[in-house]
């Protein structure tokens, strides 16, 4: 009898819980996700490890500064590329990319279509990386389906989203979102032929200055069997970063 009561209680809990889940629409989940990610500025130092199909590794340390829609990526290590920097500016929906090579001593503009390509030869595209900056999920994707599920022992929303613009290079993205804190835990990217292309997982999520942040992000290209691992070593949010940091003149300094 006692067992039965437990079972009924459990069922009740599940019903109540899932009821509350369905109370949110997919678009609302995307909105809430954006809220968890919103920061004024960020300064993140991370180790980026590229692993190729044979398991060979390439390690780099980079620092990423963001403010609004602008971002500055600077190489800290290895020594021979130290100081190499990439500036991504977005103005009036137009994005520009500038590159500074210390060996050359001046700033070069990078062709716009390269922005759809791989970020620093990693498994991330520049657009994937934008998620670290100011880009909003709800602007970039529209949700088509919403379910609840369990991922890694965590109650999750499972969103199936379609990119709002065609040049993303994905047909759809499935996102597992922690239903308690709206942190995306896993993303599956599907290529234009609708085959699974990449899987991104966020782990070691910490609360930093009230901002949930994964300490480790892994992007795995399942078609080419390559991986990129990002390990955060230093994160600072909402510090003052002057606007002129995001200028080509600053790059050359």
């Amino acid at each position: 009898m006692k067992r039965n009561i437990c079972l009924i209680l459990l069922l009740f809990c599940i019903l109540v819980f899932s009821g509350s889940a369905f109370a949110l629409t997919g678009q609302e989940v995307l909105e809430k996700m954006d809220q968890t990610l919103q920061v004024e500025t960020s300064r993140i130092e991370m180790k980026m490890t590229l692993v190729n199909e044979d398991g060979l590794k390439r390690e780099r340390t980079i620092e990423i500064l963001t403010k609004g829609n602008n971002a500055l990526v600077r190489f800290l290590h290895p020594m021979d590329v130290e100081g190499t920097a990439l500036l991504l500016l977005e103005e009036n929906d137009e994005s520009d990319m500038w590159l500074y090579l210390p060996a050359l001593g001046n700033v070069r503009k990078v062709a716009s279509h390269m922005q759809n390509g791989s970020f620093m030869g990693s498994d991330f595209t520049y657009q994937d990386f934008n998620m670290f900056g100011g880009e909003k999920y709800q602007e970039a994707y529209q949700q088509t389906e919403l379910n609840t599920t369990v991922y890694d022992e965590t109650e999750c929303y499972l969103l199936e989203t379609l990119p709002t613009s065609e040049d993303r290079g994905y047909s759809k993205i499935r996102i597992w979102v922690d239903s308690t804190n709206f942190m995306a835990l896993k993303l599956e990217f599907y290529d234009l032929q609708d085959n699974l292309l990449k899987v991104m997982t966020n782990s070691d999520i910490l609360d930093l200055d009230g901002q949930l942040t994964p300490q480790m992000i892994v992007m795995e290209n399942v078609q080419q069997n390559t991986r990129t691992i990002l390990e955060m070593t230093d994160i600072k949010y909402n510090q003052t970063i002057p606007d002129q940091v995001f200028s080509t003149r600053n790059l050359e300094k």
């Binding site: 190489f75 060996a103 390269m114 390509g117 791989s118 970020f119 620093m120």
Partner: peptide, 16 residues
């Protein structure tokens, strides 16, 4: 060495 490394990095930015 710096030039070579940075050019290679540049080449790799267009994809591995």
């Amino acid at each position: 060495r710096q030039q070579i490394a940075q050019y290679l990095l540049l080449l790799n930015m267009s994809g591995p």
